[in-house]
Each structure stands twice: as C-alpha cells, then as structure tokens.
C-alpha cells in the first residue's frame, strides 16, 4: 500500500524559514548580543537534549500514557454525547448550551482542584485531558452525524433498517471526516493537558521535568523539553493523518486530504 504523508507534499518554503530562524538564533546567542543564561543557543539546547535523553524519554513515556488514556476516554465520551444528542432532540436542547458554557471555564484553572480531589496520581491528569478533549469531538461529531444524506436514510428505511443500522451504515461514515478533524485538535490538546496537569502536581512526566529545570534556571533544558513536546504533538497529528488515510481509502484519490 502506498501512503504519502500530507506534509511531504508541502513545499520546502517553511523549512527554509525554520533554517533562517535557527541561523538567526545561533548568531544572536553566539555573538553574545543576547546573554547565554537568558537565551541558550540552538546547539546548547541540542547538547541538553542529548545529556538528558534518557530522563526525557522516561518522562515522555509517562506523559504519553496519561495523554493516551485521557484522549481515548475523551473521544469515547465526545462521540457518545454526539450520538445521544443527535438521537434525542430534547437532550440536545438540554445539554448543548451547557457544553458550550463548560468551555468558558478555563480548564487549566480547574487542574489544582482535580489534584486536590484525586491526588497526585494519573487520575486527575486523565480527567483534565478528558475535559479538554471531549468537546471538539462532541461538536464536530454532531455536525457530522447531522450531515448524513436524508434520501439515503429514506432508502435505508425502505429496506426496513432500524435506527442502529442507519447509524452504522449512514450516519457514522458521514461523520468520519468531521471526526478526524476534531481528533487532530484533541490530540494536541491531550499533550498540552497532560503537561499542565503535571505542572500542578505529579512526580513524573514532561510537565514535572519542566518545573524542575525551571527552578534551577536550566533554560537550555527548558528549551529542549519544549522542542520535544512540539515534536511529540507533531508526530501524533501525522499519526492521525495516517489513520485517516487508512480508514478512508475511498478518499485517497482526492486532493482534499
């Protein structure tokens, strides 16, 4: 099977910009225009990354496990809520405004409360990630389910199909594209959510590592971990793209993806 990632088809222009920025960064730090303790040079960051590699990987694993469970449960919750809201209009009218309202609460501000209630283990982190990831999924899935072709549903009814069959054969496939769009957002939310929950309280993870190196003013390590978090998010988003291509083979010929 031939799979071409979206990013490879993008022109080299952004790459050139990145190289330019890195070069500029190197120059201002190497010449001492900006003091080293204030802004470490790109190579300092690389060295820090290499020095702490094992530690970074161990912490990354912890963060990934939290993000995985939080995202999985968040997605399940989001999809379930969307299906229920689409099926029962009364529940839609009852729940939807509250869902939107819930997004006005700064979720990262409730992290300390979650830690207070559920301790320093994995539970409060997973809960925070669920809270941040389920919303995009629920909203996009609802749009997707509602975008199903009414004539197709009518045809299914003439075949004598029940609601569950219509959901499975028509509505869920119709919302796949919406689902992946929301998953791409939720995946990066899940990593950010995990890191922030670790800031507030925890004994391992990239967020914990971050607070520790910050306290000793090890800015090179600080930068190293930020780069690592971005890389992890990027890889996960590419993973979602790949998953979408595998799940939606009929779209492969189209340019849209």
């Amino acid at each position: 099977m031939k799979i071409k990632l979206k990013s490879t088809s993008i022109s080299l222009l952004p790459l050139a910009v990145v190289i330019l920025v890195l070069a500029l960064w190197y120059v201002v730090t190497a010449t001492g225009i900006v003091p080293r303790f204030f802004l470490p040079g790109p190579f300092d960051v690389l060295v820090a990354f290499q020095e702490d590699f094992d530690l970074l990987m161990a912490n990354m694993w912890v963060t990934l496990v939290e993000a995985f469970w939080g995202l999985l449960l968040g997605v399940i919750l989001g999809v379930s809520i969307a299906i229920i809201m689409e099926r029962f209009d009364l529940l839609y009218r009852a729940i939807y405004p509250l869902l939107v309202l819930s997004q006005t609460i700064p979720t990262y501000a409730i992290a300390p409360i979650l830690i207070l209630w559920f301790g320093y283990g994995i539970l409060p982190k997973v809960l925070l990630i669920i809270v941040t990831t389920f919303f995009p999924v629920a909203v996009e899935m609802l749009t997707g389910l509602r975008s199903a072709d009414q004539d197709l549903i009518k045809l299914m009814q003439t075949m004598g199909s029940n609601r569950l069959q219509i959901l499975w054969y028509v509505k869920l496939p119709a919302s796949l594209e919406h689902f992946f769009a929301s998953l791409r957002i939720s995946v990066s939310y899940s990593i950010i959510g995990a890191v922030i929950a670790e800031w507030v309280g925890g004994d391992a993870g990239l967020g914990v590592y971050m607070t520790r190196v910050m306290k000793v003013y090890a800015y090179d390590k600080m930068f190293a971990v930020i780069v690592l978090i971005s890389l992890v998010s990027l890889c996960l988003i590419l993973g979602v793209d790949l998953l979408q291509r595998l799940t939606m083979p009929w779209k492969r010929g189209e340019k849209a993806l």
């Binding site: 004539d151 009518k154 796949l176 939606m248």
Partner: peptide
C-alpha cells in the same frame, strides 16, 4: 417499510463502500 424495493433518482451509492459492498446492503 421493507416490503417493496425502492430506487430513487439519485443513485444513493455510499461513497465509502465499494460497489460490491453497496449492492449487498439490503
């Protein structure tokens, strides 16, 4: 519903199913 076959003006084939998987739907 389900006692007679029904075909509409639009072919209503599901773009996400192969031709074989579409026709066996009923």
């Amino acid at each position: 519903p389900g006692q007679v076959s029904y075909m509409l003006q639009k072919d209503l084939l599901m773009p996400y199913r192969t031709v074989a998987n579409n026709v066996i739907l009923p």
